[in-house]
Lab assay of single mutants.
Amino acid sequence: FSITQFVRNLGLEHLMDIFEREQITLRVLVEMGHKELKEIGINAYGHREKLIKGVERLI
């Protein structure tokens, strides 16, 4: 299971460039909250919320 699959499953594949540029893996994403996601350029609250909720389902 990769970050690419995870992001695609959430319908947020347009954010993949950010994850690749910042070298974010699923392991790193698990540790990130709204503040960190915003810092790397994910400005939409809804997108950040989707990512965080998606990660919570993985754990």
Rank of each mutant, 00 (worst) to 15 (best):
V30P: 04
E36R: 06
H34L: 06
L37G: 01
Q23A: 11
Q23S: 12
T4N: 09
R27L: 13
I18A: 04
L15I: 08
E31R: 15
L26H: 02
I40S: 03
E36I: 05
M32E: 01
E36Y: 04
L15G: 00
E22L: 07
F19K: 00
L51G: 00
L37I: 02
L51F: 05
E13C: 14
G46F: 12
H14D: 10
E31G: 15
K53Q: 11
L58G: 02
H34A: 04
G54L: 05
R8N: 08
G11M: 05
L37W: 04
V55G: 06
S2K: 07
R57P: 03
H47G: 03
G54S: 08
L12T: 02
K53H: 13
H14G: 08
H47D: 15
V28F: 08
I24M: 07
R57T: 10
E22N: 15
F19D: 00
L37S: 00
A44I: 12
E31V: 12
E20P: 03
H14S: 11
L58T: 04
I3H: 01
V30I: 14
I24H: 02
E13K: 07
I18M: 05
E20M: 13
I40M: 09
G33R: 07
V30Q: 12
V30K: 14
E56H: 13
N43R: 09
G46Y: 15
E39V: 07
K53V: 07
L51P: 01
H47E: 15
S2C: 14
L26E: 02
L15F: 05
D17A: 14
H14W: 08
H14M: 14
F1V: 12
L58E: 05
I3A: 05
R21A: 09
G33I: 04
L29E: 01
G54Y: 06
I52G: 01
Q5E: 15
I24N: 03
H47Q: 15
Y45V: 13
K35T: 09
Q23G: 15
V55N: 01
I52S: 00
K53I: 08
F19T: 01
R48W: 06
L51R: 00
Y45R: 14
E31W: 10
Q5H: 11
L37E: 01
M32Q: 02
L15M: 05
A44G: 12
I59V: 11
E13T: 10
G11K: 07
G41C: 07
E39M: 12
V7C: 11
L12E: 01
S2G: 15
G11V: 03
I24A: 02
Y45Q: 11
I42V: 10
D17E: 12
K53S: 08
I40C: 04
E22P: 03
H14T: 10
I40V: 08
E49W: 07
F1H: 10
F6Y: 04
